[in-house]
Write a protein that binds this DNA or RNA. Structure first.
Length: 691
DNA sequence: ACGGCTGATACT
DNA sequence: TAGTATCAG
């Protein structure tokens, strides 16, 4: 749920940009003859004309609404042009809209920190740009105000008698005005400029809200559509919010908003003001309580995250009612389609953005026939993600089996075996998450992630095994380190070292290495045959929480040990299809814990003996087989908390590495506190230019 | 027996 | 953690 964040004392300038009926615009650009005509985009069309997912403004005049069926829309608006969403692999494919969104983002990210909020929405932090502009034009910005900015809507402006336009001009000029409002005026100018650039370069129009925080910007970006912008001066916040229905507020459109209405009798934001923070905390918990208290007053400290790329990719499809999947083979067929799309998107993310996803998750929805517990939810399952279409397909199917067994229950499995008519699948989706950027300058790693077609015919260098094992490997026992194993590769360790060094100049410390302090080590020891380089984390004084500090992709290229382990306390164990590492200490721990295994992170592995033999069981029924068990094992196999990188350690790294580590951090919300405003983390997420 | 598909976030 | 729930558009 919502989380409260204090708002900094300094005034910020935040914009929320919202593309106007985006999918429709994309289609109209593709087919210019549709411009000016009532248009909507529909998804599938065999059943009642398909579902509308975007409606153009001309069509809205007729009362056409999103989530109407195509047939309904035709009734209301016979002239309506219904454009279908592209279909690929038997399902809707939104990639053209995703790519169009990327075009926009790459333009908007020019002027400040930029956060991709959704496929057609963006937040911008324009504080620095606005401050700079104001500093350069202390006597007013009239000469800068262009036509577009003067069309802004300024909330709370009294338009008594005067021409609205003159009022706005006056507001932009205010010499006596509040400093904060002057900043907003600059922000409005910048946004107007950006919107024009977007229009010029993409042919898309958008609307915008400009305010001191995300909440207010978001709230107002949609107030005047299409192709207009709205400013929220500090002084008008209170009056603006008071009469607003609470369900209009982001996060309050659902159950929480309903609860406020029914339990507290609150219908407008103003009504919320009567409740003390303590009261709200008692009812909704500390975080949510404070958050509610704050937003009622227009306070919202949420930062604009510098993120231009999505944090996950997914591909899914529903199979409503009669189309529900009732056989394993139909499930497999559809999973294969979904995985194919996902794999394609992962591959292009890798090529365009140099990012690697680490987790594969399967979601399904199902109902049971003739069963009292037919409401039970199908469990989601996940495992480490291996690149390659068929690997993703295999793993997804295993995850499905694991989920299915849990769903129908172990007893039924035993009794009924492969009875195919106890369940029906109404929805399937596969997604890839924990996406981490590969540090720049490590292009060599790219070739280890190619498509499986290439994979089969090329060398077997894909035998790297990233081992990422908290607390088990460091000599101290408390620290952690991350290692890259070279298992059975045709490349010799020396070759790899040379390669890596060549690709990452400056990555390795100088000959004699750095001084190693007692508590905190960025140690690297080279011996002739045993290059041993690793980060060892500082021992936590207060807690023994395990922590792994680097995303595996980073860690993997920055440190590795030869194929022979040197640490005396370790033993390498062949287990299933991968290498495991155990320390004596950890062994005990694992033995007492249910189905825990030493950690192994394998991004991929070769189409090798070990993997194919035990990895994925037969796709037949598998009520008894250990289908999915390997997957389950892998799913426990790694963890790290990148936000727990010891700053002492981090600061000892070469500057460029530091930057990369920071850029790769997961959990940006904790990071946001320490990131200086305007420090350009976005730099590491270069926009992808889609042609 | 239809609002589909895709994403983010927070809790546990 | 992984898995669930909620929310949004």
């Amino acid at each position: 749920m919502p989380v409260a964040k204090p708002e900094s004392s300094d005034a910020r300038v935040i914009a929320h940009i919202d593309m106007d009926c985006f999918y429709v615009q994309v289609e109209q650009r593709k087919q210019p003859n549709l411009r000016g005509q009532p248009t909507a985009v529909v998804q599938y069309n065999s059943w009642k004309g398909g579902g509308l997912i975007a409606v153009g403004y001309e069509a809205r005049k007729f009362g056409v609404k999103r989530s109407m069926r195509g047939d309904e829309a035709k009734k209301i608006c016979p002239e309506i042009q219904l454009v279908q969403v592209p279909v690929a692999r038997g399902k809707a494919d939104l990639s053209v809209y995703r790519n169009a969104g990327s075009e926009v983002i790459s333009i908007l990210s020019r002027k400040g920190r930029c956060e991709r909020a959704s496929i057609d929405e963006v937040y911008l932090d324009l504080t620095e740009a606005a401050e700079t502009m104001l500093a350069e034009h202390p006597n007013g910005i009239l000469e800068l105000t262009d036509e577009e900015a003067l069309k802004s809507h300024v909330l709370g402006l009294h338009l008594d008698g005067l021409n609205a336009r003159d009022c706005v001009r006056e507001w932009f000029l205010m010499n006596d005005g509040d400093h904060r409002d002057k900043l907003l005026a600059c922000g409005a100018l910048i946004v107007a400029e950006l919107r024009l650039e977007v229009l010029k370069e993409t042919e898309f129009t958008c609307s915008a809200g400009i305010a001191h925080n995300k909440m207010l910007a978001k709230l107002t970006s949609g107030m005047h559509k299409p192709a207009q912008q709205t400013v929220v001066p500090f002084s008008s916040v209170k009056k603006f919010l008071e009469p607003l229905h609470i369900k209009k507020m982001k996060q309050l459109g659902g159950k929480l908003g309903t609860s406020l209405e029914t339990e507290l009798g609150v219908s407008t934001v103003g009504d919320l003001l009567q409740f003390s923070e303590e009261n709200l905390q008692e009812r909704y918990g500390r975080n949510t309580g404070t958050w509610l208290w704050n937003i009622a007053r227009g306070i919202c400290g949420e930062e604009v995250e510098g993120r231009l790329l999505p944090k996950s990719h997914g591909s899914g499809k529903t199979f409503p009612g009669p189309q529900a999947l009732k056989t394993l083979s139909s499930v497999q067929k559809w999973l294969n389609e979904l995985c194919e799309e996902l794999s394609e998107r992962l591959q292009s993310d890798l090529e365009q953005n140099k990012r690697i996803a680490h987790t594969l998750t399967l979601h399904a929805s199902a109902y049971k026939l003739n069963d009292s517990e037919s409401l039970k939810k199908f469990p989601s399952k996940s495992c480490p993600l291996r690149y390659g279409t068929t690997k993703i397909q295999e793993d997804s199917l295993s995850l499905f089996h694991t989920g299915l067994r849990e769903y129908i229950g172990i007893y039924n499995v035993k009794a009924k075996g492969s009875n195919q008519h106890e369940w029906a699948i109404t929805g399937l989706s596969v997604s890839a998450s924990k996406i981490v950027a590969i540090p720049s300058g490590t292009n060599s790693i790219m070739k280890y992630f190619h498509n499986e077609d290439q994979n089969c015919t090329s060398r077997k260098e894909s035998d790297y095994v990233f081992t990422n094992d908290a607390a088990s490997l460091s000599s101290s026992g408390h620290g952690s380190l991350v290692q890259l194993h070279l298992a059975g590769s045709e490349l010799e360790p020396g070759e790899v070292e040379a390669k890596t060094q060549q690709d990452m100049p400056g990555l390795y410390p100088k000959e004699n290495g750095t001084e190693v302090s007692k508590d905190s080590v960025f140690g690297t020891k080279f011996t002739d045959n045993q290059p041993l380089s690793f980060f060892q984390m500082k021992e936590q004084k207060e807690s023994l929480k395990e922590e792994i500090l680097l995303p595996p992709s980073l860690a993997g290229v920055q440190s590795w040990v030869g194929s022979k382990p040197t640490q005396s306390k370790m033993e390498f164990v062949e287990e299933g299809s991968g290498l495991s590492v155990k320390s004596g200490k950890q062994k005990r721990k694992f033995d007492t814990e249910k189905r825990t295994t030493p950690s192994i992170l394998r991004f991929f592995h070769s189409n090798d003996e070990a993997s194919s033999s035990s990895d994925i069981g037969a796709t037949t029924d598998g009520c008894k087989g250990n289908l999915g068990e390997d997957v389950l094992r892998r799913s426990n196999s790694w963890n790290y908390k990148s936000d727990e990188i010891d700053p002492v350690v981090l600061n000892e790294l070469p500057p460029e590495i530091q930057a990369e580590v920071r850029a790769s951090l997961l959990q940006p919300q904790t990071q946001a506190k320490t990131v200086k405003r305007g420090s350009s983390i976005v730099h590491y997420f270069l926009p992808t230019k889609n042609s």
